[in-house]
Amino acid sequence: MSKGMIEKLKLLPIYILIGFIAFTCVTPFITIIATSFSGHSAILTGKVGLWPVDFHINAYKAVLMDAKFYRSLMVTIFVTVIGTLLNLCLTALTAYPLSKNIKGRKYIMTFIVFTMLFSGGLIPNYFNVRQLGLLDTVWALILPSGISTFNLIILRTFFMGIPKELEDAAFMDGAGQARILWKVYVPLSKTVLLTLGLFYAVAHWNSYMNAMIYIRNSELYTLQVRLRQLVMGDMATQLTGSLSNEDQQVLVLESVKAAIVVVSTIPIIAVYPWLQKYFVKGVMIGALKG
């Protein structure tokens, strides 16, 4: 055996170990997918592993035909889309002036960064939202997370790296600051803005606590709240009420639960390749910043 081969063989345990850990990371999710497509008795007798047994799509039919689930899906999509657009506008509008040498910039930055270190906490936040009359409105899910300070810092850093000459040239052509932001800075930072949009969208999609605290009206429940209730068993009878057999209820619930989990993760999986690419970069920027 050549020396290179021996070297490679020595690495085999490491390959196996990393492979095993990586496999463990996704196995639970694969089981859920398998369960969501599996037959009732197969789930109960523990036959379902990584592959569906007695394949069928009844669970998905039950989920997608459920009016409440459908409504939650719409609320979540609305919050994610409108919330992300608002996030991007607010973040860009705030980051732009702060990337310029305006007077008092340092104080404004301190004012903003301080909120990363200290917060009012749960109860004062709740009363604040209540005071503003946002309780039980969809805006309670959007406005309180208007700007992520972390994302703001990333965008500001990027804006600061755009050559001044471009701005000067536009200025000479008679463009005002708003125009320069819109016609010069936004097109130049398309990738960064898309990345931040992805960050924001995932945060909105995954957000649970705000909906739990600020929303009492079940018409406005988000997907995460629904899912949580389902897992807690609150909705067990509602979703499977049509089935008479008690055993069947439990069984349907397992595959229906699994189907809801899968449906709730589809958007995340869909954007995952980009997420992974840019999130890693984001962490690096964060790491460099400290």
């Binding site: 509008l93 705030t94 732009y96 002036p97 909120t115 604040n128 208007g146 200025f171 005002g176 600051q177």
Partner: peptide, 27 residues
């Protein structure tokens, strides 16, 4: 030129006051 920049900052500042500093006062 700078006045416009300060105007741009207004929504952001309002956001931080309304959703971060008001709760701190609530403490």
């Amino acid at each position: 030129k700078n006045t416009v920049l300060y105007i741009m900052l207004i929504p952001g500042i309002i956001y931080y006051i309304a959703f971060h500093y008001m709760p701190m006062y609530g403490l």
